[in-house]
Design a protein around this nucleic acid. Structure first.
Lengths: 335, 335
DNA sequence: CTGTTAGCGCATTCAT
DNA sequence: ATGAATGCGCTAACAG
């Protein structure tokens, strides 16, 4: 049924070793025999079996990617960066959603390892001791992507979420705001959640503004939770004059609630966030936001992984990509 | 270095066949020996090699997915549907972006086939004769996902784009609009482009409205092209009173340009589109849009593929999922 | 219920 | 530059 390297060898009148050589572009083949082999391949419609090759060579040219949720625009962007670079180096990607759930994360890491991936890109929630355990049992390189572990024992590429939040809030304090609310993500989340909250607190502190916990609401990153939080803030006796949201979606929810409430953005309330997704410029007023190079995070981490897989020298095992404040129209000076 | 099934067999004092049996949950093993084997596995830290298994069994429990662009929210949603169902049936996904470019599409189909995937989900642009050729050379099932071929020779799951556009435009004619513009996608694209354009024309016709080609602009699906098109329409001597956009993003661009121009939506100009992405309810006014069940398209196509891979009986080789008009605030009666 | 024996399709020595 | 032989780690008859 299926045509194998052996069939090709017979058809071309050579040995399977020779066929293997031409298929793998080994230069040690006379052009003439190479031609013969190619013709036989053509005639028979031979297609190399990558699984057999993988078993024999112990290389599959595929890497595993564990991702929280591919339907989330942020991660999808990272994934695209990964795949583009992977493609460039002739790797394929096995993609697994793990929803930031530890059990699922560890499970997929193991099945990926069983599939003999040549390397692993891990994008997830908190990296726990158990994760490290699973990683250690791998004999292929693993790099953390858009996550970091506390110990700093793993290769990783990420941005500095704390500092990104700091910059966003500083834009607010810099504009003279003193009563600044935050719509946070869950504090259990180390990157989107806790780190951004910390950046908020540090920026407040740097501006000499006391922390007021009644000015912080925890959302779930989504639009609706942005409007909910804003609703709460606007009912406060002393309303905030500015709001920092941990994600664009929540910021947009906040903007819309402010507007529906009869107030104006940014004249009455300034809004800023971090993510700078496409949506940021698709709202009115356009949203100021800290841009995170998600595509690049994917691309750089995949590039790093290729180096590790090829055992090349790498100078930077832990890379932090720069973020950038994109100023649009949602922030005004405090009155 | 690596511990194999043979090592486990020796450690447990059984044959490799027995180890294979317990690993594969074959019931024909005495509970006692099963226990012994599990202990040996534990002690040695044995991890089954899926590549070797794949070679021996001719099944890899992985399916290939070719997708236009994972960073596009629409496709990412489909991908999530695919992965969820795949997971449920213990398949993994190899994901390849092909940007709707024929050469790339055919190339990845071939490498996926080389990797011995058990099945293939194809999401792309036009399915040409060359595609069919490549598909035919596969000896695994393939289903088209969010695409169809003209001949109808392939299993597929999709929505009826023409009818979706028809419904959207009919909502406009139903509201009394006669001067209805369209912001189309490229007409070369069979689903998002041409089919939606055809639906527009048919709805016009059904309402007895003559087709006016000056009322159609071709965009690139993105926000900016929506504002560009709207700019053109509002400069017309006789402005449209309603606009149908082929995607939410273009619709939102149109809405914003209308508002920036000093007109109101929907009072002055009604806007409707198809896609119903999350963004539709994240604009003001909220956008009426025809919902396409992207997640379901992914889920159903993967489910169909599993049936095909298991050679189960399937009653419907070509399924069309229903769409639904979601009425929000962007359409008003014509004055 | 368990063990023996062949491959699966290919890369890779080692010769020649 | 080419061929012969071996084994990668596992499943799948088959035998018992």
């Amino acid at each position: 049924m299926t045509v194998t390297i052996y069939d090709v060898a017979r058809e071309a009148g050579v040995s399977m070793a020779t066929v293997s050589r031409v298929v793998n572009n080994n230069p040690n083949v006379k052009p003439q025999t190479r031609k013969k082999v190619f013709e036989a391949i053509e005639r028979l419609g031979y297609r190399p079996n990558a699984v057999a090759r993988g078993l024999a060579s112990k290389k599959t040219t595929t890497v595993g990617v564990v991702i929280p949720d591919i339907s989330n625009a942020i991660f999808a962007e990272v994934a695209r960066g990964i795949e583009d670079i992977a493609n460039m180096y002739h790797y394929n990607i096995i993609l697994c959603n793990a929803d930031k759930r530890k059990d699922k994360e560890i499970r997929v890491v193991n099945t990926l390892l069983e599939k003999q991936v040549d390397g692993l890109l891990f994008m997830g929630g908190t990296v726990t001791e158990e994760h490290l355990q699973a990683f250690k049992s791998a004999n292929v390189p693993i790099v953390l992507c858009a996550t970091t572990d506390e110990h700093g024992s793993m290769p990783s590429v990420d941005i500095d979420h704390e500092s990104a939040a700091f910059d966003a809030v500083s834009a607010l304090t810099g504009a003279g705001h003193r009563r600044i609310a935050m719509i946070s993500g869950t504090l259990q989340d180390p990157s989107n959640g806790y780190a951004r909250f910390q950046g908020y607190r540090r920026a407040l502190e740097a501006a000499g503004i006391p922390y007021d916990e009644s000015l912080v609401r925890v959302g779930n990153y989504r639009y609706e939770s942005g409007v909910e939080a804003m609703k709460y803030f606007l009912e406060l006796d002393e309303r905030p004059t500015a709001v920092f949201a941990a994600t664009d979606e929540m910021a947009i929810g906040a903007i819309h609630y402010i507007q529906d409430f009869g107030l104006r953005v940014p004249e009455d309330v300034s809004v800023i966030s971090v993510d700078n997704t496409r949506m940021a410029s698709m709202v009115r007023p356009q949203l100021s936001s800290v841009a995170q190079p998600m595509y690049d995070i994917g691309a750089v981490s995949m590039r790093l992984l290729t180096k590790l897989m090829k055992k090349e020298q790498v100078d930077q095992l832990r890379v932090i990509l720069p973020h950038e404040l994109i100023t649009r129209q949602s922030v005004a000076a405090a009155r």
